[in-house]
């Protein structure tokens, strides 16, 4: 019971962090048709900017300004990079973001060093919030939950209830028509790209001190966010939300299960000492998303909620 409840809470928090990353990615994809390989790099930049900000100012300053800075950077990348690569086709765009991820990795290593930086939870949030079954639950995790849900509601309101959201939704499906109506479609693209990167940056700010802030965090998170977006269905925010929570729960539960293959395949003669039998479920946790990805792409290429194929 205890394990289940804690895994549930942690899984939801991890899932919401995944959603903050994947919501931007899926918006960018549905608008420009680019699967942005560098998206997780912007998440990493958010964490590093926040670390640098907290050294001179406070965490709250970083919480607001680090995502804005990341968003501006994203807009610059769209304006001066992607837009000129666009004429060479989709593969070139995909490779451009791939190269960008590579470049950001190296720049981060040069500027902040190759080891993890000491980016900590702010003192004002570093206390146990409540006690469950004798174990304390840190307040910062609840803070992540609140910020993520707040962002979710704000995003939903922006897209579904405001005029800006209306134009964005129209630009997703009928960019030419929106252009004919007098809106500056390239600028909308730039804004959405920037906003998506800012969301990733925000995830970095609140996730960097919850997880680890090191140069490998982008390479660790990037493929998983892809998996979320593909499983949820490209371009579908609802799908991305469901897939994020699903993956978050799946991975946290897989880690907490204390069993190995011999427990399941004992009937087939697989013993705990054999190579296959000694593989534990928890060691499979990092592989699960990719297994799911390959299965989904083969069985249902549109993903859970998507209406178009990858």
């Amino acid at each position: 019971m205890e394990t289940i409840l804690f895994s549930l809470l942690n899984g939801v928090i991890y899932g919401l962090l995944l959603f903050m990353l994947s919501s931007g990615l899926t918006l960018i994809f549905s608008m420009m048709g680019i699967l942005n390989f560098a998206h997780a790099s912007f998440y990493m930049l958010g964490a590093y900017f926040a670390f640098s900000f907290t050294q001179v100012t406070s965490f709250w300053f970083a919480l607001i300004f680090a995502p804005i800075l990341v968003g501006l950077l994203g807009a610059l990348v769209e304006r001066w990079g992607l837009r000129s690569v666009h004429q060479h086709g989709h593969v070139a765009e995909l490779l451009f973001t791939f190269g960008l991820a590579y470049l950001i990795d190296e720049v981060v290593k040069i500027v902040w060093g190759k080891n993890a930086v000491d980016y900590r939870v702010p003192e004002s949030l570093d206390f146990p919030l409540f006690e469950l079954f004798g174990a304390q639950y840190p307040a910062y995790r609840m803070f992540i939950l609140v910020v993520a849900v707040g962002m979710l509601v704000a995003l939903w309101y922006l897209l579904k209830r405001t005029r800006i959201g209306l134009i964005i939704q129209a630009a997703l499906t009928h960019p030419h028509m929106v252009g004919h109506l007098g809106h500056n479609v390239p600028r909308i693209f730039m804004a959405v790209f920037g906003a998506g990167c800012a969301l990733a940056g925000l995830a970095g700010v609140i996730g960097g001190n919850y997880l680890v802030t090191d140069p490998a965090m982008a390479a660790f998170m990037g493929p998983i966010v892809f998996v979320v977006v593909v499983i949820g269905g490209l371009g579908s925010l609802e799908g991305a939300f469901i897939a994020s929570l699903l993956l978050g729960l799946l991975q946290t539960f897989a880690i907490s299960i204390d069993a190995n293959f011999s427990d399941f395949l004992g009937w087939a003669g697989v013993t705990a000492t054999s190579e296959l039998g000694s593989i534990s479920i928890s060691s499979l946790a990092p592989m699960l998303p990719f297994l799911l990805l390959v299965l989904i792409l083969i069985v249902k290429p549109t993903g859970l909620m998507g209406d178009r194929e990858v």
Partner: peptide, 11 residues
């Protein structure tokens, strides 16, 4: 296209 790229990544 993109699906092939993603599958190759997962595999």
């Amino acid at each position: 296209g993109t699906a092939f790229a993603m599958i190759s990544l997962g595999v």
